[in-house]
Amino acid sequence: MSEDIVYSIKKRWLPVYIILLVATIVLMLGLGYLYLKSGSTDYLSSILLVALFAAYIAWSISKVIRIKIAPRKLVSLVKCTHCDYSEERNYEKGDYVFKNLGQCPKCSKGRLYISGIYLKGGEEKIKEKIQPLPLLRIFSSIKHL
């Protein structure tokens, strides 16, 4: 899956982001110390700039951390030709659709066969409702007050 590869490539940047974040925090502390010592407002401006940069890095880290690859499992659906017996089991090499698997353990009359082979899980969820933009949500909640 190429998306998984893209995600794994993006995740490789995580240590770099963390190092940058730590460095900017250290820089901020240093600038804060200098401001306290000298009282020059130039240091305050620098702290503001560095804080903006740190916020951007923190946002990038949160984006990378939020990436989650849903687990998937390949299963074979086994059914009986006579009764309602149905069982999902892990796919085994050599399985194919309509493969005969012998007698049904439930009714002993019908025979078991593979009704289908498919992937379980890992599907994307679709948002049912269109969500308003965050600002619009705030305005609409104010209107209700």
Binding site: L77, G116, Y118, G122
Partner: peptide, 13 residues
Amino acid sequence: SSVMNEKIFKAVE
């Protein structure tokens, strides 16, 4: 073009 998923299989039935 990838392995059939559960939703498609249910749609087949």
